[in-house]
């Protein structure tokens, strides 16, 4: 791709300094997103997906959290260097975000309309009346029936799926360049999940924004993403086009997730895809953080940490022994 990068995250590190010790929630994450593209970010619970996205929004609670290192270039501007006032101009306007829990992400004491209008009134120079009309238009676009009526209702009067649509309407109301969706469908039941994903896909065509789609559901990623970053213990361990990643995973972790289980549409959290536990973020192992669960681990893995390297064109993996994985795949492929 020759287009300008929309966002370019380099070596991002976000730590939480707690009483128990330093939690290296995100420790050296790099990726980029191009305009209009969808990047999927996938990984087990606690691997730092939400912290990454909140770091981009500069919404990490501080203290205890702090962006320790790295840069987040958005249209060439480093977001980590901006002050809160400058950041507020970007939030909800250039970059907006929807969250996992539609039931709790809307303020219970204000109407849906008030909450959508608030974003519009902050970022656009419009009157209250125009903002209200825009809010109603947005509700129509996200497929909420009777928008003129719904606009004056309170969140508790809507179902979970409807609330997530409201969240989407709110996040798109200022026509953002990047939409960060942090597990937008996890809390919904399966049929509603499919509807919301479909809605997001069609809105993406309509609005042309880039999406950073966070999930621990490999099926969701396969459906919506152009490229995928796989995270493990605060790091990106594999990074590739969605076809390449699914067709030919180059990291033992990704491979484990996909081939040790019969169906890829499984929830990583619930199924123990790979034996062993996610390491405690207060006390990560030396060397490759996956070495406690990796069937290919050697002494080298327990000492030195591998960096993300291009193993095929546009396909990155952080592993010392990609070759061993290839052997194993070859064996199984025949068997």
């Amino acid at each position: 791709m020759s287009k300008e990068k929309l966002i370019d995250v380099n070596d991002l590190a976000t730590y939480f300094h707690t009483e128990e010790g330093t939690v290296k929630a995100v420790d050296g994450v790099s990726f980029e997103i191009y305009p209009g593209e969808t990047l999927g970010i996938v990984g087990e619970s606690g691997c730092g997906k939400s912290v990454t996205s909140l770091s981009i929004m500069r919404l990490i609670e501080s203290p205890p959290g702090k962006i320790e290192n790295g840069e987040i270039l958005f249209n060439g501007k480093d977001l980590t260097k901006l002050n809160q006032k400058q950041m507020r101009k970007i939030r909800g306007n250039d970059i907006s975000m929807i969250f996992q829990e539609p039931m709790t992400s809307l303020n219970p004491v204000y109407t849906v309309g008030d909450q959508i209008m608030e974003a519009i009134l902050i970022h656009k120079d419009v009157s209250k009346k125009e903002a209200r009309q825009e809010a109603i238009d947005m509700l129509t676009k996200v497929g909420i029936p009777l928008p003129e009526q719904r606009v004056d209702e309170y969140p508790h009067q809507l179902s979970g799926g409807m609330r997530q649509r409201v969240m989407i309407a709110m996040s798109l109301s200022c026509d953002p360049q990047l939409l960060i969706a942090d597990e937008p469908t996890t809390a919904l039941d399966v049929t509603i999940q499919a509807q919301i994903l479909e809605l997001m896909n069609s809105l993406k065509r309509q609005f042309g924004m880039a999406i950073m789609m966070i999930t621990h559901d490999l099926g969701v990623i396969a459906e919506v993403s152009d490229r995928v970053a796989v995270m493990y213990a605060g790091k990106v361990v594999e990074y590739a086009d969605v076809k390449d990643l699914y067709g030919d995973p180059k990291h033992p972790y990704t491979w484990g997730l996909m081939y040790s289980i019969p169906h890829i549409e499984k929830d990583l959290e619930r199924l123990e895809a790979i034996p062993g536990n996610v390491p405690n973020p207060l006390n990560f192992p030396e060397g490759c953080k996956f070495n406690t669960r990796c069937q290919f681990a050697t002494d080298k893995c327990r000492v030195d940490e591998p960096e993300l390297e291009e193993v095929e064109e546009g396909h990155y993996s952080a592993c010392w022994h990609v070759d061993k994985l290839e052997e194993q795949k070859a064996k199984q492929g025949r068997g």
Partner: peptide
């Protein structure tokens, strides 16, 4: 600490509006 406070911040709402409008009433 509620999610909707984070939502408000993510919209670009000013911190004192977050506190006095979104939080206090709840």
């Amino acid at each position: 600490r509620r999610d909707y406070i984070r939502t408000a911040r993510a919209k670009g709402v000013k911190e004192n509006v977050v506190v006095y409008k979104h939080a206090v009433r709840n």
